[in-house]
Simulated scan of single mutants.
Amino acid sequence: MSISILKTGPLATIQDLGRYDGAQWGVPLAGVMDIPASLIGNLLVGNSPELATLEITLGGFSARFECDTVIALTGAVAPATLDKQPIGCWRNVPVRAGQKLKIDFAPAGARIYLSVSGGVDVPMVLGARATDLAGHFGGLNGRALKAGDVVPLGQLTGPAPDAQVRAPERGDVLRVLPATEWSAFSPAAQQALLTEPWRVTPDANRMGANLAGPVLELGQPLDLSSHAVQPGVLQVPPSGHPILLLPDAQTTGGYPKIAQVIRADLWRTGQFRPGDTMRFVEVTLEQALAALAEQRRWLAQLENQLKWRV
């Protein structure tokens, strides 16, 4: 049971929920950049949430299925066909052996998830199947997928009922909490972060996104030792242009941190593409926790609606 890769587009990797226990050893989180999209994709095809999917950046992907299965496309909504017949996103679709899937480039959003019944069956490395591109491990031989690859699949879960989910809206706002060095930045820098638009530059990948906007200056010189960082942190290097850290980011850094994207909004960071503009809004810790609880309730409701068994 497998998928034969015909074309990958800019980047396609095998990802799951990531390596949450590796930071103490300097191992990045990795994993999918849009967790709700991956979770819902797995639900749509009858998988447990931790199973691996294919993360496809922007689109331009095609593959042939070597077995009967069920698939779902979630994340960025892209035109897609199965044997040249249009199929929808955010729903499950039965597939027959020999059929070819083509995913065109998404008009908006950055990452598309291809979930397949049984999940992508590659070896676990350090507790996950996620591809760590910098470390060259996980996924398929620790690298991005390429044409000619054969991706193994797990056992088909069973026949799925027709199901569809409404795609959540990304919007352009990311809610943030002040980070450790917030007070070290000048009042003008604090105001600029929260009032000015920030554009994702072409210098963006799974490690982080450089943002273009006003220069954020410290109120006074600050010399920091390397310290722990995590996805969602906004680091500010000497240039004054912030860097938004993403799942493949290093686990330590020495730049001052001005803000942290709240956990409920981390999925949105994975759907911004170069040229997109984002805005930051400060919230309280209580509001951040309430947003996370609301997101978890929404996902639990979907799970109850979509859960099916053989």
Rank of each mutant, 00 (worst) to 15 (best):
I258K: 02
P107D: 09
P123D: 12
G275D: 08
E282Q: 15
A106L: 04
W25F: 15
A78M: 01
F65R: 01
M124A: 04
R263N: 08
L43Q: 07
D172W: 06
L11G: 09
S225H: 13
P242E: 03
F185L: 08
V310K: 12
V173R: 11
G142V: 00
M124E: 12
P79I: 03
G135L: 06
L54K: 09
V215C: 12
A52P: 07
Q220P: 04
Q155R: 11
P10C: 07
Q305Y: 12
S226E: 09
R111T: 07
T269L: 03
I14K: 00
Q99I: 08
R170G: 04
P94D: 06
A204R: 02
V77M: 07
D121N: 13
V200I: 15
P28E: 01
L289E: 14
S4H: 13
M33I: 05
G31S: 00
S62P: 06
L222C: 11
A179W: 02
I56S: 02
V310Y: 10
R296N: 09
A108D: 12
G135N: 09
P79R: 03
G59K: 01
G31I: 01
G135P: 01
I5A: 05
A249I: 00
S239A: 14
K100G: 05
H241Y: 13
G135M: 04
A130H: 02
G240P: 04
Q220E: 15
W182C: 11
T180M: 10
E286W: 00
R166M: 15
Q155H: 06
D68N: 14
E294D: 13
T251P: 08
P49K: 01
R170E: 01
Q287Y: 15
S115N: 04
G142K: 02
P107F: 10
L174W: 10
G148F: 12
A212C: 10
Q155T: 11
M207I: 00
L43E: 04
E181L: 08
K146G: 11
A189M: 01
A23P: 00
L114G: 01
N304A: 15
D149A: 14
L222Q: 09
D132N: 15
L218Y: 10
D265W: 11
V261S: 06
F272D: 08
F185E: 05
M124I: 13
T157I: 07
D276N: 13
L6I: 12
G18P: 04
T69N: 10
P152Y: 14
S62G: 12
L126T: 05
A12C: 15
A52C: 09
D223R: 13
R296E: 13
V77P: 01
P221D: 11
G208F: 05
T74P: 07
L44S: 06
A167I: 03
L58I: 14
G18S: 10
V32Q: 06
K84Y: 05
A23T: 05
A37F: 07
N47I: 04
R279T: 04
P79L: 10
